[in-house]
Amino acid sequence: MFTNVKRSFRRRDQEVLALDDVSFEVGEKEFVAIVGPSGCGKTTLLRMAAGLDFPTSGSVRVGDREVSGPGPDRAVVFQQFALFPWKTVEENIAFGLRCRGIDADARSRIVASYVELMGLQGYERAYPQQLSGGMQQRVAIARSYALDPDVLLMDEPFGALDAQTRVVMQEELIKLCRVNPRTALFITHSVEEAVYLADRVVVLTRRPGRIREILDIASVRRREGWDTYERIEEVMDLESFVHLRTRIWRLLRERQEDAAPAGIAVKSA
């Protein structure tokens, strides 16, 4: 999906390299999480996959096509929900369908099914600001899922939620992905979240973002039977989970210490 992607920005007549030579692939129906320190360019990677940003060099492909802009095969869930405040829950979920010119009957059928799936019954006519953060993000996920995209792109979708709501949403996302598997790219700065949700975790270094390591979680998950546990805290207690989490933390920390002087130099210049 990503091959030799580089992205630099001009800031006050200075070229700042944000991403350097990033290559990885997300398999069909695979859930890949990207973790990295803030400013490592992980959101930029996701925006490139969405077609909202473009690499300075290298290429981003979805399927066998180069990404040239937003497309119906990819949907994005944003950290700040990005629901339209002037639209009701129903209208928000229906938005993408409406843009695609799907007729009203089919639209309301699809919307109703996602309202039910995401537990939003009774809130169909509410405006987003009348809902809690967790409910708003459910609406945003429903809006993306309703388009039936091949690829789901999620940019720290639970980052703005409180800890308890976050855990509930993580459990629900796991269930949703089991019922309705999609190719997913998931950005987060939470190591636990990445290990809990993903099949593979891509660890990025501090700016300029490079791939530190890619860890295979799916094989551990299968071997240790994580999916047999209902609750996130049970999985998080397992030795295999703790081991992976510690490993990622170490990877992140090592790199941070190496790269710190460079980061400071960029800022002061």
């Binding site: 909202l52 949907a75 994005v76 944003f78 629901l83 938005f95 993408g96 843009c99 388009l147």
Partner: peptide
């Protein structure tokens, strides 16, 4: 972000104007 959200959900230029 709302403009980006509209675009990734398939809004045309006209729909961007009328819906966002």
């Amino acid at each position: 972000t709302l403009v980006a959200a509209a675009r990734v959900h398939g809004a045309s230029r006209l729909q961007l104007v009328t819906h966002v």
